[in-house]
Amino acid sequence: MKDYKILFTGSVCSGKTTAIRSLSDIETLDTDASASDVTVRRKKNTTIAMDYGVLELTSDARVHLYGTPGQERFRFMWEMLACEFAHDAIGMVLMVDNTRKDPFRDIRFYAKEFSDYLLKRRLIIAVTHSDVEPSPDYQEYLSALKNLGIMTTVMFIDARDPRAVLGIVEELISAVERNIDWDSVCDRLLDNNGFTLDFYKPLYEETLLDAAMNKRGVLGAMHLGDEQEILCSNIDDKPTKNLMRNIDRLTDAISDKAGFLGKVNNVVLAGPDVQTLSVFNDKSQSLCLCSDRDISLPVLKQQASDLLQWSIENDYLA
């Protein structure tokens, strides 16, 4: 029996679990837990350890499919998968969610994270959710990748569709395994796993503020545009709102005058018996949070970063 391995990675909600589920001949191993943080804005469950499935190609060849957790806090699992379980994988599939605020930022991030891993194997970029957000399109991906110096295959897929995901496997395996009847594998998958649009239904109903408020310790949130205009807010206290807008104005001024010192990432105001006020900057937008004094800054930073990544340009989804 020849055993091949493929590693799937990518951001939260990019479709890794769904892709593996679409392909697997066995009941997939999902290590999903209820999403207790901002991830809930997109889906109810999130992978916390790994996904695993097996696809039979012929009577003597099969592919083991491994999926990393999307959230950066489970980075230790990325390393474990790359160095242990899937250290001998034939290729890596980077799933890119096209609804993300900056999908190319995800590519840069994961290409860097897995740079050593990719020295010895092929990378395929699988773009998902392009039915919801068609831009950037195929040509834009090709030119962005060229600029990044990444020569690879880009495929636009629907992770729910076994035919589409099987195309990735074929792309990786057909060079080394020539006697596979891909059509019959595809028919079997469609018979067994099916393909319905309800298979994976993203939850877009919750707003940025809902997602922020879902985090333990967050008591209020305000989303500001690049001119400090309030895009949405559930903070009622006017002095607090004014204070946060002034802080945001200040960070813009510092970035203008002292950009050579680096990016102003955040400003936090704290004190005894008062809520902690934080302003997180990301290019042309900021997220202001009122939180319980006891909540730690690293936790807040993680949440704010996840929220800002796909807020302003996807608000029409809310």
Binding site: N242, L243, N246, L250, L261, N265, N266, D273, V274
Partner: peptide, 23 residues
């Protein structure tokens, strides 16, 4: 600037942190 604003808004914040670059 920050503590002047804090005083104006009459809040009790007495510490501020600014993350800039790696510092």
């Amino acid at each position: 600037y920050l503590f002047l604003n804090v005083a104006k808004q009459k809040t009790k914040h007495d510490e501020a942190h600014l993350e800039i670059g790696e510092q």
